[in-house]
């Protein structure tokens, strides 16, 4: 709690950034995000775009798992629905790419809501297994269906906006950034109003929520649909950005990676989803760079890199679970708390 900050209206008190320091930090981050692409090379831009897409997907998963407490192992499958819907709408029906992205979100929301039906009866681990079934069914459907090209990759024309090719790194960055900002604003607003509060209530104490008038089943389905909408957006963006869609990007491994992102970033935290996405995108990149730097001194290193990456990935998750289960968001909060009263922090 900041001292010396007073509000004279409830509107000001309910603001997302109630203190001047918070607003300054936000402006600094936004300016950095706008300036970044003018100084970055293509490799850095590719990483940034991956982070933007992963952040949107992670916020989607966090709405369901972090905020509503429904563990989902179907993230990869739902992303696949978004990616394939968007690609197939463009390829087969000639829908403009931007409309295909929007429709892909809606389709994924409907599919997600459908696979949320078992949450009427199942909780916790049992629900996790049901969502694992969703993942497998979707994967199987994509490989077997004649529509999706099976194991062959789909190729989409690059998305054009007024003649600008948006699948190029520099151009896509702006699209991704705007959509991420939109997603963040939607999510933070959602969780300070009726529906978002009901989601959190279901996570914390579902019986009490029901007795206070929350139709728990309806809100669980709504959580599945809302979450899947953004997961679908992330999948559709991936399709448009890569211009190639293939099923092996959306396997159970993807689902687990996204769970790792929100655990490391912070369950039930919108900003944590972004921290987690940054961390998990940069971790393999940094390890690969370290590996190639060491190649001259340790010749075997190049062959070991993939294994080291997997080991570090696992180790990171374990360390976070033991030492900071609330993730990077909590670490950042602790740092802020420390400096709030610094240097007289007693």
């Amino acid at each position: 709690m900041e001292s010396g900050v007073f509000h004279s209206s409830y509107q000001a008190d309910m603001g997302l950034r109630p203190t001047p320091l918070m607003r300054i930090r936000l402006i600094v981050v936004l300016v950095a995000a706008v300036v970044f692409p003018f100084f970055a090379n293509n490799y850095q831009l590719t990483l940034a775009n991956q982070i933007l897409i992963a952040s949107i997907g992670a916020i989607g998963l966090n709405i369901l798992t972090g905020f509503t407490g429904q563990i989902s192992l179907g993230q990869g499958g739902f992303m696949a629905i978004g990616a394939y819907s968007s690609a197939l709408l463009v390829i087969n029906l000639g829908v403009p790419w931007w409309l295909s992205v929007l429709l892909a979100c809606v389709i994924t929301a409907i599919v997600g809501g459908f696979f949320g039906l078992p949450s009427l009866r199942l909780k916790g681990l049992y629900l996790a297994i049901a969502t694992l079934a969703a993942q497998q069914i979707i994967e199987w459907g994509i490989i077997r269906s004649p529509l999706t090209g099976g194991v062959e990759a789909l190729v989409v024309d690059p998305p054009l906006l007024f003649g600008i090719n948006l699948s190029r790194d520099f151009n896509f960055y702006w699209l991704g950034l705007i959509l991420l900002i939109g997603t963040v604003l939607f999510a933070v607003n959602l969780f300070r109003t009726k529906v978002g509060r009901a989601f959190i209530a279901i996570r914390d104490q579902d019986i009490a929520a029901e007795v206070m008038g929350v139709n728990v089943f309806r809100y669980k389905l709504l959580a599945f649909a809302t979450s899947s909408f953004f997961v679908g957006l992330s999948g559709a963006l991936l399709a448009q950005y890569r211009t190639i869609v293939s099923f092996d990007r959306f396997t159970i491994e993807t689902s687990i990676t996204y769970l790792a992102i929100i655990i490391i970033g912070g369950l039930g935290s919108v900003s944590g989803s972004i921290y987690g996405a940054i961390f998990m995108t940069l971790l393999p990149a940094v390890l690969t760079n370290i590996g190639s730097a060491l190649e001259n001194t340790i010749p075997q290193m190049a062959g070991l890199i993939p294994f080291v990456r997997k080991a570090v990935f696992g180790l990171t998750i374990i360390l976070f679970l033991i030492f900071e289960p609330e993730g990077l968001a909590k670490i950042w909060r602790d740092i802020k708390d420390y400096f709030r009263l610094w240097p007289f922090s007693y």
Partner: peptide, 29 residues
């Protein structure tokens, strides 16, 4: 049986649930 991770205000606001009208869309905006 409170919602442990919510603030006191949010817990009380959840008590208003049946009187609130906003939807996913209007809430998100």
């Amino acid at each position: 049986e409170l919602f442990k991770h919510m603030s006191v205000l949010d817990n009380l606001m959840l008590g208003r649930h049946v009187h609130l009208k906003s939807s996913v869309f209007s809430g998100g905006l």
